[in-house]
Simulated assay, not measured.
Amino acid sequence: MFDKRLRQKLALQKEKGLYRNPPVVDDGDGRTVTVDGRTLVNFASNDYLGLGRCETLRKKASDAFSRYGTSSSSSRLVSGNASVIREAEKAYADYFGYEDAIFFPSGYQANLAILSTLFGPEETLLFDKHVHASTVKGMQLGTAPFKGFRHNSMGHLEKRLKSASGHPVVVTESLFSMDGDTPRLAELAELKKSHGFLTVVDEAHAYGALGTGGRGIAREVADVALGTFGKAMGLFGAFVLMPSLYREYLFNFASPLIYTTALPEAHAVTALAVLSEVERGDGRRERLSSLSRKLTRLLTDRGFTVCGEAHILAVQIGSEERAHDLVTKLFDQGYFAFTARFPTVPMGQAIIRLSLTANHTEKDLEDFSDALFRLSR
Rank of each mutant, 00 (worst) to 15 (best):
L299N: 04
F338G: 00
I351M: 03
T305R: 13
A310Q: 08
L295W: 01
L275H: 04
A350M: 01
T305I: 15
D282L: 06
V269E: 09
C307A: 12
V315A: 03
L288Q: 04
T328R: 15
A266E: 00
A271M: 13
P346L: 04
A262N: 09
A314V: 12
G348I: 00
D282W: 02
L330V: 11
L263T: 06
V345I: 12
L330D: 05
A266M: 01
I352T: 04
G281C: 09
H267I: 10
H311Q: 11
R284A: 07
Q349Y: 00
G303Q: 11
L291W: 02
E309M: 11
R322Q: 12
R341C: 07
I351A: 01
L288T: 00
A314R: 09
F331E: 05
S319W: 04
V269I: 11
C307V: 14
Y335K: 03
V327N: 01
R341N: 10
A340C: 13
P343H: 07
A310E: 08
A266N: 01
P346I: 02
C307F: 10
L263V: 13
R297P: 02
H267W: 06
Q333E: 15
R284I: 01
S292T: 00
L288D: 00
P264L: 11
T300L: 08
R297E: 08
P343I: 07
I312D: 03
T344Q: 09
S292P: 00
T344E: 12
G283I: 00
S319E: 07
R285W: 00
S290G: 14
I312Y: 05
S319Q: 06
D325W: 15
T300N: 05
A340F: 08
A314L: 10
Q333Y: 14
S319H: 04
V327E: 03
I317N: 03
